[in-house]
Amino acid sequence: MIPKMIIQDRKVCSFLFGQEINGETFQIVRAFDQFIIERYKRIVIESVPSYHMVTVFFNKSIVHTKVLQEIMEAWSTYSLHLQLKESRKITIPVCYETPFSLDLERVATENHLSVEKVVKMHCESLYTVFLIGFLPGFPYLGGLREEIYCPRLDVPRRLVEKGSVGIGGKQTGIYPIDSPGGWNIIGKTPIPLFDLNRSRPFLLQAGDQLSFKRITMEQFQEIEYQLKEDSNAVIESLLGS
């Protein structure tokens, strides 16, 4: 698929592959991102994949040059023999109990469901990390069951604690750092998504497949203890590496 090229500045170009959230479009986005990183290291500073677009930051001007034309030609061959790297599958433990589940009742009432059912539905889905942004390491997740969509809070909280798992409209996500936020908080994970003291500061990347596993308060505290002992080991075991 040949993208629409959007020149943002002399050294920045976005490649647009569609207009909506769509699994197929996102696979092309992932492939194009992989293609740029593999083939154009020499002239690319970085590339940012998102739902329907890959934005590439070049280290030199691409205006009035043949660079974009060459990229398009190379892409049309590359995309024919595409071997997409397999998605990582990561299971995030979440405790849906008080005091973490601040808005779980609200999500249940809003959707005429029991609290139990909301938790079950949240845990049963497989989610895709479409995009990381808004906050360092914040994943925009797709795949939330329609039955548990819930509008954002009318007044955002001044402080949502890091690790909080929330539902904002049609999306669900995890707060990587303490931040103001308007999403409905339904639980909390003990696993930090972003930690500069780890050998892998960022747990997630675009393209990952995510699921949530329900844990008790005791298990939450047990994982917190393990993290204190050796956070790298906990992260490696989550990533299955």
Partner: peptide, 9 residues
């Protein structure tokens, strides 16, 4: 709109 990359400027 779908969220998309933004930058300085």
């Amino acid at each position: 709109l779908l969220s998309e990359p933004t930058m300085f400027g």
